[in-house]
């Protein structure tokens, strides 16, 4: 698949990410290649310590110690610093909605500041629209995070990510901290937003069920490497080649049945 030049959203070649230096150096991602086409929904699956979240952080610029190449929307990224245009293209939703909202800022302030940073002028109207688009009414606008439930917080976090009107969303286990019934609401919301706005998703999860529901293409990571990439249709039929993928599929089905 070589669409990186025309309509590829994310193209990663030979990515290595490490933490620490010298003897304490710990390589979290060991040379991976990944291509996500525009409009695709791509899942990155693995267990804790597999390096799946680290990949997202390297793309977003939150981890600076990496080499290889990352291209997003045709723009080749540097280790340090991202352009204004990058932040308008790529946004991220974090795992824990209890940790991703500033405890002293109201929803209004969170969204208002984001919009202001991106240079929008019609902030009031946009906040209202953003809250509507994530299924929160205006009644939530002036609440503090502690006055919101986990699902509502995650909706605010999604609204914040949508504020600059990005084309790519990096989703770092967006529902793993939530109850299943709330997870269903958030996943539905994410599906709706994707079809409405034509977004590209790169979603990290440990839950094969969630990835199977949300994504078209899935890569399985183990200890910093992609061991297998397969379409969701194959995954549903349990047609995996790599033993680790098989093991993952079996244990997640074991837990479901």
């Amino acid at each position: 698949m070589n669409m990186a030049n025309d309509n590829g959203a994310i193209d990663i070649r030979n990515l290595r990410v490490w933490f620490g230096e010298g003897a304490a150096r710990n390589v979290a991602v060991k040379g991976m290649n990944l291509a996500v086409g525009a409009g695709e929904s791509f899942g990155l699956v693995g267990e804790s310590g597999s390096g799946k979240s680290t990949v997202l952080r390297a793309i977003a610029g939150l981890v600076e110690s990496w080499d290889g190449s990352i291209t997003v929307g045709g723009e080749s990224l540097r280790q340090k610093g991202r352009s204004k245009a990058f932040y308008k293209t790529v946004q991220m939703v974090f795992q824990d909605p209890y940790a991703s909202l500033h405890p002293r800022h109201t929803v209004d302030r969170v969204l208002g500041e984001t919009l202001q940073l991106h240079g929008f002028s019609d902030i009031d109207a946009r906040i209202t629209r953003l809250l509507d688009s994530v299924g929160l009414g205006g009644g939530f606008r002036f609440r503090y995070p502690h006055q919101l439930s986990g699902g509502q917080r995650q909706r605010v976090a999604i609204a914040r990510a949508l504020a600059p009107e990005p084309r790519i969303l990096l989703l770092d286990e967006p529902t793993s901290a939530l109850d299943v019934s709330v997870q269903a609401e958030i996943l539905n919301l994410l599906s709706d937003l994707r079809s409405e706005m034509g977004l590209t998703y790169l979603m990290v999860s440990h839950d094969l069920g969630v990835v199977g529901h949300m994504c078209g293409q899935v890569a399985v990571m183990q200890q910093g490497e992609i061991v297998e990439e397969l379409g969701v249709a194959e995954m549903r039929k349990l047609q995996a080649n790599h033993p680790y993928t098989k093991h993952l599929l079996e244990s997640s089905l074991g837990a479901i049945r």
Binding site: V180, S181, Q183, A184, E185, L187, N188, S191, D207, L208, G209, V210, G212, H213, M214, M235, R236, L249, S252, L253, I256
Partner: peptide
Amino acid sequence: NAVPDLEHPRDRLEVL
């Protein structure tokens, strides 16, 4: 019904 099931995919998850 809210749990996404790998083997029985649905377009939308049922919301409680």
